[in-house]
Design a protein around this nucleic acid. Structure first.
Lengths: 155, 155
DNA sequence: AAAATGGTTCTCTATTTTATAAACAAAGTA
DNA sequence: TACTTTGTTTATAAAATAGAGAACCATTTT
Protein backbone atom coordinates (compact mmCIF):
# COMPACT_ATOMS: atom_id res chain seq x y z
CA UNK A 1 0.00 0.00 0.00
CA UNK A 2 1.58 3.19 -1.17
CA UNK A 3 2.28 5.97 1.29
CA UNK A 4 -0.27 8.77 1.43
CA UNK A 5 1.50 12.05 0.91
CA UNK A 6 0.94 14.80 3.43
CA UNK A 7 0.16 18.28 2.15
CA UNK A 8 3.58 19.33 3.32
CA UNK A 9 5.30 16.70 1.23
CA UNK A 10 3.19 17.50 -1.82
CA UNK A 11 4.07 21.12 -1.54
CA UNK A 12 7.75 20.32 -1.00
CA UNK A 13 7.73 18.18 -4.15
CA UNK A 14 6.35 21.09 -6.14
CA UNK A 15 8.98 23.47 -4.82
CA UNK A 16 11.74 21.01 -5.60
CA UNK A 17 10.22 20.72 -9.06
CA UNK A 18 10.31 24.45 -9.61
CA UNK A 19 13.86 24.63 -8.28
CA UNK A 20 15.08 22.15 -10.85
CA UNK A 21 12.91 23.58 -13.58
CA UNK A 22 14.57 26.95 -13.09
CA UNK A 23 17.91 25.26 -13.56
CA UNK A 24 16.93 23.91 -16.94
CA UNK A 25 15.45 20.54 -16.07
CA UNK A 26 12.09 19.76 -17.63
CA UNK A 27 9.27 20.31 -15.15
CA UNK A 28 8.13 16.74 -14.69
CA UNK A 29 11.65 15.48 -14.16
CA UNK A 30 12.09 17.90 -11.32
CA UNK A 31 8.93 16.69 -9.65
CA UNK A 32 9.83 13.04 -10.04
CA UNK A 33 13.13 13.95 -8.45
CA UNK A 34 11.30 15.53 -5.55
CA UNK A 35 8.87 12.62 -5.22
CA UNK A 36 11.58 9.98 -5.07
CA UNK A 37 13.43 11.94 -2.41
CA UNK A 38 10.44 12.59 -0.24
CA UNK A 39 8.87 9.14 -0.23
CA UNK A 40 9.78 7.25 2.93
CA UNK A 41 10.52 4.19 0.81
CA UNK A 42 12.66 6.31 -1.53
CA UNK A 43 11.17 4.44 -4.47
CA UNK A 44 7.98 4.23 -6.49
CA UNK A 45 6.48 2.18 -9.27
CA UNK A 46 5.60 3.65 -12.63
CA UNK A 47 1.94 3.61 -11.72
CA UNK A 48 2.53 5.28 -8.36
CA UNK A 49 4.43 8.09 -10.03
CA UNK A 50 1.52 8.59 -12.42
CA UNK A 51 -0.93 8.70 -9.51
CA UNK A 52 1.11 10.79 -7.08
CA UNK A 53 1.86 13.44 -9.67
CA UNK A 54 -1.39 13.19 -11.67
CA UNK A 55 0.33 13.11 -15.01
CA UNK A 56 0.02 10.86 -18.03
CA UNK A 57 1.84 7.61 -18.50
CA UNK A 58 3.58 8.91 -21.58
CA UNK A 59 4.97 11.88 -19.71
CA UNK A 60 6.30 9.62 -16.96
CA UNK A 61 7.71 7.14 -19.44
CA UNK A 62 9.62 9.85 -21.26
CA UNK A 63 10.86 11.55 -18.12
CA UNK A 64 12.04 8.30 -16.54
CA UNK A 65 13.86 7.21 -19.68
CA UNK A 66 15.58 10.57 -19.85
CA UNK A 67 16.59 10.43 -16.20
CA UNK A 68 17.88 6.91 -16.58
CA UNK A 69 19.92 7.94 -19.59
CA UNK A 70 21.40 10.67 -17.43
CA UNK A 71 22.15 8.12 -14.77
CA UNK A 72 19.98 9.92 -12.22
CA UNK A 73 17.47 7.15 -11.82
CA UNK A 74 17.59 3.36 -11.74
CA UNK A 75 14.98 0.71 -11.16
CA UNK A 76 14.94 -2.63 -9.48
CA UNK A 77 12.37 -5.40 -9.50
CA UNK A 78 11.05 -7.50 -6.66
CA UNK A 79 10.72 -11.27 -6.67
CA UNK A 80 7.37 -12.37 -7.95
CA UNK A 81 6.40 -8.82 -9.00
CA UNK A 82 6.39 -7.41 -12.50
CA UNK A 83 6.52 -3.76 -11.61
CA UNK A 84 9.66 -1.72 -11.70
CA UNK A 85 10.66 0.17 -8.59
CA UNK A 86 12.30 3.42 -9.59
CA UNK A 87 14.71 5.14 -7.27
CA UNK A 88 17.28 7.91 -7.35
CA UNK A 89 20.84 6.91 -7.97
CA UNK A 90 22.21 9.27 -5.36
CA UNK A 91 25.26 7.31 -4.26
CA UNK A 92 27.56 8.96 -6.77
CA UNK A 93 26.77 12.51 -5.80
CA UNK A 94 30.49 13.21 -5.66
CA UNK A 95 30.85 12.67 -9.40
CA UNK A 96 27.80 14.76 -9.98
CA UNK A 97 29.06 17.64 -7.89
CA UNK A 98 32.44 17.50 -9.53
CA UNK A 99 30.88 17.79 -12.95
CA UNK A 100 28.67 20.64 -11.82
CA UNK A 101 31.59 22.61 -10.48
CA UNK A 102 33.65 21.89 -13.57
CA UNK A 103 30.77 23.21 -15.66
CA UNK A 104 31.48 26.64 -14.31
CA UNK A 105 35.07 26.54 -15.40
CA UNK A 106 34.24 25.49 -18.96
CA UNK A 107 34.00 29.11 -20.06
CA UNK A 108 37.75 29.53 -19.61
CA UNK A 109 38.25 27.82 -22.93
CA UNK A 110 36.20 30.43 -24.78
CA UNK A 111 37.83 33.26 -22.91
CA UNK A 112 41.22 32.09 -24.17
CA UNK A 113 39.92 32.05 -27.72
CA UNK A 114 38.46 35.51 -27.32
CA UNK A 115 41.70 36.88 -25.91
CA UNK A 116 43.65 35.38 -28.79
CA UNK A 117 41.23 36.86 -31.34
CA UNK A 118 41.32 40.40 -29.94
CA UNK A 119 43.66 43.10 -31.13
CA UNK A 120 44.84 44.69 -27.96
CA UNK A 121 42.93 47.88 -28.54
CA UNK A 122 41.33 47.89 -25.10
CA UNK A 123 44.09 46.55 -22.83
CA UNK A 124 42.08 47.11 -19.69
CA UNK A 125 39.21 45.03 -21.00
CA UNK A 126 41.51 42.29 -22.22
CA UNK A 127 43.25 42.24 -18.88
CA UNK A 128 39.95 41.65 -17.11
CA UNK A 129 39.11 38.81 -19.44
CA UNK A 130 42.49 37.36 -18.63
CA UNK A 131 42.00 37.68 -14.92
CA UNK A 132 38.61 35.98 -15.05
CA UNK A 133 40.14 33.26 -17.15
CA UNK A 134 42.97 32.75 -14.70
CA UNK A 135 40.48 32.53 -11.87
CA UNK A 136 38.49 29.83 -13.65
CA UNK A 137 41.64 27.86 -14.28
CA UNK A 138 42.65 28.29 -10.65
CA UNK A 139 39.26 27.00 -9.50
CA UNK A 140 39.62 24.00 -11.75
CA UNK A 141 42.88 23.05 -10.05
CA UNK A 142 41.29 23.46 -6.62
CA UNK A 143 38.31 21.16 -7.12
CA UNK A 144 40.07 18.03 -5.88
CA UNK A 145 41.14 19.87 -2.73
CA UNK A 146 37.51 20.68 -2.05
CA UNK A 147 36.58 17.03 -1.86
CA UNK A 148 39.69 16.13 0.03
CA UNK A 149 39.13 18.94 2.51
CA UNK A 150 35.57 17.81 3.04
CA UNK A 151 36.55 14.26 3.82
CA UNK A 152 39.32 15.37 6.11
CA UNK A 153 37.00 17.67 8.02
CA UNK A 154 34.48 14.89 8.51
CA UNK A 155 36.83 12.70 10.55
CA UNK B 1 33.62 52.79 -39.28
CA UNK B 2 32.67 49.59 -37.54
CA UNK B 3 35.09 46.71 -37.50
CA UNK B 4 34.55 44.04 -40.12
CA UNK B 5 34.30 40.68 -38.42
CA UNK B 6 36.50 37.86 -39.64
CA UNK B 7 34.90 34.50 -40.26
CA UNK B 8 36.77 33.22 -37.24
CA UNK B 9 35.23 35.84 -34.98
CA UNK B 10 31.76 35.26 -36.38
CA UNK B 11 32.06 31.58 -35.74
CA UNK B 12 33.43 32.19 -32.25
CA UNK B 13 30.46 34.43 -31.47
CA UNK B 14 28.08 31.68 -32.49
CA UNK B 15 29.86 29.13 -30.34
CA UNK B 16 29.81 31.45 -27.36
CA UNK B 17 26.12 31.97 -28.04
CA UNK B 18 25.43 28.26 -27.99
CA UNK B 19 27.50 27.84 -24.85
CA UNK B 20 25.40 30.36 -22.97
CA UNK B 21 22.19 29.11 -24.53
CA UNK B 22 22.88 25.65 -23.16
CA UNK B 23 23.27 27.18 -19.73
CA UNK B 24 19.80 28.70 -19.86
CA UNK B 25 20.49 32.11 -21.34
CA UNK B 26 18.27 33.11 -24.22
CA UNK B 27 19.99 32.62 -27.56
CA UNK B 28 20.35 36.22 -28.63
CA UNK B 29 21.73 37.29 -25.27
CA UNK B 30 24.49 34.75 -25.59
CA UNK B 31 25.45 36.03 -29.00
CA UNK B 32 25.42 39.65 -27.90
CA UNK B 33 27.66 38.54 -25.07
CA UNK B 34 30.02 36.96 -27.56
CA UNK B 35 29.93 39.95 -29.88
CA UNK B 36 30.80 42.45 -27.19
CA UNK B 37 33.71 40.32 -26.06
CA UNK B 38 35.13 39.74 -29.48
CA UNK B 39 34.96 43.26 -30.88
CA UNK B 40 38.30 44.99 -30.62
CA UNK B 41 36.56 48.09 -29.30
CA UNK B 42 34.65 45.94 -26.80
CA UNK B 43 31.55 48.00 -27.49
CA UNK B 44 28.89 48.44 -30.13
CA UNK B 45 25.95 50.67 -30.88
CA UNK B 46 22.43 49.36 -31.07
CA UNK B 47 22.50 49.54 -34.82
CA UNK B 48 25.82 47.74 -35.07
CA UNK B 49 24.50 44.89 -32.95
CA UNK B 50 21.50 44.61 -35.25
CA UNK B 51 23.77 44.51 -38.29
CA UNK B 52 26.49 42.25 -36.95
CA UNK B 53 24.04 39.64 -35.76
CA UNK B 54 21.41 40.12 -38.47
CA UNK B 55 18.52 40.21 -36.04
CA UNK B 56 15.63 42.56 -35.57
CA UNK B 57 15.74 45.76 -33.59
CA UNK B 58 13.11 44.60 -31.14
CA UNK B 59 15.02 41.42 -30.39
CA UNK B 60 18.11 43.48 -29.64
CA UNK B 61 16.13 45.99 -27.62
CA UNK B 62 14.62 43.26 -25.45
CA UNK B 63 17.88 41.39 -25.01
CA UNK B 64 19.80 44.54 -24.08
CA UNK B 65 17.15 45.61 -21.59
CA UNK B 66 17.27 42.21 -19.99
CA UNK B 67 21.04 42.19 -19.83
CA UNK B 68 21.10 45.66 -18.37
CA UNK B 69 18.58 44.62 -15.73
CA UNK B 70 20.90 41.75 -14.87
CA UNK B 71 23.77 44.17 -14.65
CA UNK B 72 25.69 42.36 -17.39
CA UNK B 73 25.65 45.26 -19.81
CA UNK B 74 25.92 49.03 -19.57
CA UNK B 75 26.03 51.77 -22.11
CA UNK B 76 27.80 55.05 -22.42
CA UNK B 77 27.38 57.93 -24.81
CA UNK B 78 29.97 59.99 -26.64
CA UNK B 79 30.06 63.77 -26.77
CA UNK B 80 28.15 65.09 -29.73
CA UNK B 81 26.76 61.67 -30.61
CA UNK B 82 23.29 60.39 -29.88
CA UNK B 83 24.01 56.72 -30.14
CA UNK B 84 24.47 54.50 -27.14
CA UNK B 85 27.61 52.44 -26.92
CA UNK B 86 26.83 49.16 -25.22
CA UNK B 87 29.55 47.23 -23.45
CA UNK B 88 29.94 44.33 -21.05
CA UNK B 89 30.17 45.17 -17.40
CA UNK B 90 32.89 42.67 -16.75
CA UNK B 91 34.74 44.40 -13.97
CA UNK B 92 32.69 42.74 -11.24
CA UNK B 93 33.27 39.20 -12.39
CA UNK B 94 34.16 38.30 -8.82
CA UNK B 95 30.61 38.95 -7.65
CA UNK B 96 29.29 37.07 -10.60
CA UNK B 97 31.45 34.05 -9.95
CA UNK B 98 30.56 34.08 -6.30
CA UNK B 99 26.87 33.99 -7.13
CA UNK B 100 27.39 31.23 -9.66
CA UNK B 101 29.20 29.05 -7.17
CA UNK B 102 26.63 29.80 -4.49
CA UNK B 103 23.92 28.72 -6.93
CA UNK B 104 25.22 25.19 -6.67
CA UNK B 105 24.86 25.17 -2.91
CA UNK B 106 21.27 26.40 -2.95
CA UNK B 107 19.93 22.86 -3.06
CA UNK B 108 21.16 22.25 0.49
CA UNK B 109 18.12 24.08 1.76
CA UNK B 110 15.74 21.65 0.08
CA UNK B 111 17.78 18.68 1.17
CA UNK B 112 17.35 19.74 4.77
CA UNK B 113 13.62 19.98 4.31
CA UNK B 114 13.49 16.58 2.69
CA UNK B 115 15.53 15.00 5.45
CA UNK B 116 13.23 16.53 8.04
CA UNK B 117 10.15 15.28 6.23
CA UNK B 118 11.32 11.69 5.86
CA UNK B 119 10.56 8.92 8.31
CA UNK B 120 13.83 7.14 8.73
CA UNK B 121 12.69 4.08 6.85
CA UNK B 122 15.69 4.02 4.53
CA UNK B 123 18.55 5.10 6.77
CA UNK B 124 21.15 4.52 4.08
CA UNK B 125 19.34 6.78 1.64
CA UNK B 126 18.79 9.46 4.27
CA UNK B 127 22.45 9.28 5.23
CA UNK B 128 23.47 9.95 1.64
CA UNK B 129 21.14 12.94 1.45
CA UNK B 130 22.76 14.18 4.62
CA UNK B 131 26.25 13.72 3.31
CA UNK B 132 25.48 15.59 0.11
CA UNK B 133 23.91 18.32 2.16
CA UNK B 134 26.95 18.58 4.40
CA UNK B 135 29.17 18.79 1.39
CA UNK B 136 27.16 21.66 -0.07
CA UNK B 137 27.33 23.50 3.21
CA UNK B 138 31.05 22.86 3.39
CA UNK B 139 31.52 24.26 -0.11
CA UNK B 140 29.56 27.34 0.85
CA UNK B 141 31.96 28.06 3.71
CA UNK B 142 34.95 27.57 1.42
CA UNK B 143 33.96 30.04 -1.27
CA UNK B 144 35.70 33.03 0.31
CA UNK B 145 38.89 30.99 0.60
CA UNK B 146 38.79 30.34 -3.09
CA UNK B 147 38.96 34.03 -3.91
CA UNK B 148 41.50 34.69 -1.22
CA UNK B 149 43.67 31.82 -2.40
CA UNK B 150 43.51 33.10 -5.94
CA UNK B 151 44.63 36.58 -5.03
CA UNK B 152 47.40 35.22 -2.86
CA UNK B 153 48.67 32.98 -5.62
CA UNK B 154 48.75 35.91 -8.04
CA UNK B 155 51.37 37.86 -6.12
C1' DA C 1 -6.52 -18.47 -26.12
C1' DA C 2 -8.39 -14.44 -23.78
C1' DA C 3 -7.73 -10.99 -20.59
C1' DA C 4 -4.94 -8.20 -17.74
C1' DT C 5 -0.67 -5.80 -16.68
C1' DG C 6 3.17 -2.67 -17.37
C1' DG C 7 5.11 0.31 -20.08
C1' DT C 8 6.13 2.57 -24.88
C1' DT C 9 5.12 5.15 -28.95
C1' DC C 10 2.55 8.21 -31.82
C1' DT C 11 -0.39 12.03 -32.80
C1' DC C 12 -2.34 16.19 -31.45
C1' DT C 13 -2.82 20.38 -28.69
C1' DA C 14 -1.75 24.09 -25.46
C1' DT C 15 1.87 26.96 -23.80
C1' DT C 16 5.99 29.35 -23.91
C1' DT C 17 9.81 31.27 -26.24
C1' DT C 18 11.97 33.77 -29.73
C1' DA C 19 11.94 36.69 -33.29
C1' DT C 20 9.87 39.86 -37.00
C1' DA C 21 7.77 43.95 -38.89
C1' DA C 22 5.56 48.04 -38.49
C1' DA C 23 3.94 51.82 -35.81
C1' DC C 24 5.46 55.03 -32.41
C1' DA C 25 8.08 58.39 -29.47
C1' DA C 26 11.69 61.50 -28.50
C1' DA C 27 15.18 64.45 -29.73
C1' DG C 28 18.04 66.70 -32.81
C1' DT C 29 18.55 69.05 -37.75
C1' DA C 30 17.67 71.56 -41.75
C1' DT D 1 7.75 72.92 -39.35
C1' DA D 2 9.04 68.92 -41.59
C1' DC D 3 12.64 65.36 -41.67
C1' DT D 4 16.02 62.26 -39.85
C1' DT D 5 18.06 59.50 -36.44
C1' DT D 6 17.86 56.28 -32.62
C1' DG D 7 15.76 53.27 -30.15
C1' DT D 8 11.09 51.29 -27.92
C1' DT D 9 6.61 49.15 -28.13
C1' DT D 10 3.11 46.49 -29.94
C1' DA D 11 1.05 43.18 -32.51
C1' DT D 12 2.00 38.94 -34.65
C1' DA D 13 4.09 34.86 -36.53
C1' DA D 14 7.06 30.88 -36.23
C1' DA D 15 9.16 27.36 -33.68
C1' DA D 16 10.25 24.70 -29.69
C1' DT D 17 8.49 22.27 -25.42
C1' DA D 18 5.71 19.76 -22.53
C1' DG D 19 2.28 16.87 -21.89
C1' DA D 20 -2.42 14.36 -22.74
C1' DG D 21 -4.68 10.54 -24.65
C1' DA D 22 -5.17 6.58 -27.21
C1' DA D 23 -3.35 2.89 -29.71
C1' DC D 24 0.01 -0.38 -29.33
C1' DC D 25 3.21 -4.18 -27.90
C1' DA D 26 5.22 -7.69 -25.02
C1' DT D 27 4.60 -10.46 -20.99
C1' DT D 28 2.04 -12.70 -17.63
C1' DT D 29 -1.93 -14.53 -15.59
C1' DT D 30 -6.22 -16.80 -15.86
Amino acid sequence: MPEILSEKKKELIERIGVFHEQRGMQPLMGRIFGLLMVLDEAEATFEEIVDYLSVSKSAVSNALNFMQAQNKVRYKTKPGKRKRYFYLKIDDWENDMQQQIEEITKGAHFLNEVIAARKNEKPEFTRQLQELCEFLEYVKTKIPNLFEGFRKQKR
